[in-house]
Nucleic acid binder design. Structure first.
Lengths: 210, 210
DNA sequence: TGTTAGCAGTAACAAAAGTTACAGTAATAC
DNA sequence: GTATTACTGTAACTTTTGTTACTGCTAACA
């Protein structure tokens, strides 16, 4: 387990801290599609992502969902951090995008390390900053871009976190994550295919590099 | 000056910290409309808002602007925090919504206090959390609401930070902050007036309580 | 093998938002 | 007082997005 942590966090934490983490963390494997955090849930342990990818979603009161961003190796969710520190309910939902591994840290340790390890303090602030920055991207997408551009961005992001140019998703699934309708997605995907940016197959979409 | 700080931050900082702040802070008065932070600017001091209100805006590469949220007494801008800590350029623009006062803190002190004052650490984390939460609201607005609802929300927010039911803005100004066009704003405002939610006058809008 | 369920494509229409153009009126400058 | 400018209202139209409905196809499976 120390190896796993070292692999994911070597450049980030000093060896002593990695050792402490391995001593107290619970390792937690997850499968694609696992619902890791629900909206309204209290968080009692802080997750560090070791391998795999997680998607973070926001939900409307009425209906509708929106993908905010992905977490990858070496990330933690600032939203969850916020919950831990502030003792509040989760405002987001986290679902495993791929299979992977989490290290769960007791909240008490988190606070303790803030005082003792500069690298931990840096990590926490960097996480917050990254998340704020991802939220800004999400806002840019929503405020300044049309659906076709958002869709193309989505496909590129998805390809990146899955490390594959083939996106295995139905149009309906994509529509959920962009908070639009299946028909709109099909229409715009067809247009992107006509522009030779993608190739459509059943249940998957190929991103064509140019 | 200590009085000012005590007034705005009494419940938040311990007296010893308030004293330290008054010792090192530069007080900075601003007028409505002052451009306090520009996109791309490096931030060398951290601002604490003592009185007044500040609006935080995001800008598109091409054109278009969007109001993210307002800061009020006792707030600081987590975006700016992020810039200070991360030594990066500002991703947002800050413009004075009303006249007011800022205390500017040298970055070095910020880090020092993180170790020495628990109340400061709490403040920094609470700021981050509040800002993440405001960003989520902004995303909710964009993703799940139609323009008429966004417009009404905007008017209510504006009334709140200005402590007045009369919003002194032209339709064009409102259109900029919502990233839409003047005609759309005029149209929807007219509809809101017909629903007896507001009263339109030249250069100002009255929010009618129900 | 035939049935069924889920997926994708598309047409036709509706609603929301954006655009262009113009008119009337208040505020301001000269 | 007149001219100019800024602000608002509105019509007419376009584009984008959302909705409903139907079709054909594929994969799974009884």
């Amino acid at each position: 387990m120390e190896e796993l942590l070292t692999d994911a966090y070597a450049g980030i934490f000093e060896p002593a801290l990695i050792e402490e983490i391995s001593a107290v963390a619970n390792i937690n494997d997850f499968e694609e599609g696992d619902r890791l955090i629900e909206i309204g849930q209290y968080i009692r342990q802080m997750p560090l992502l070791i391998t795999g990818a997680i998607k973070i979603l926001r939900e409307d009161k009425v209906e509708g969902e929106l993908l905010l961003y992905f977490l990858e190796k070496g990330d933690t969710c600032a939203m969850t951090l916020a919950c831990c520190m502030g003792q509040t309910k989760s405002e987001i939902r986290a679902i495993a995008e791929t299979q992977g591994t989490l290290a769960m840290i007791p909240i008490g340790k988190m606070e303790e390390w803030l005082g003792r390890y500069k690298s931990w303090r840096n990590f926490v602030f960097t996480s917050y900053n990254k998340r704020l920055s991802e939220m800004l991207s999400a806002i840019d997408n929503l405020a300044f871009m049309k659906m076709d551009e958002r869709l193309l961005n989505f496909l590129k992001e998805k390809a990146k976190v899955n490390k594959s140019a083939v996106i295995v998703n139905t149009h309906q699934e994509i529509a959920y994550e962009l908070n639009t309708s299946r028909v709109v997605v099909s229409r715009l995907l067809k247009a992107l295919e006509n522009e030779k940016l993608i190739k459509l197959n059943r249940n998957n979409i190929e991103l064509l590099k140019q």
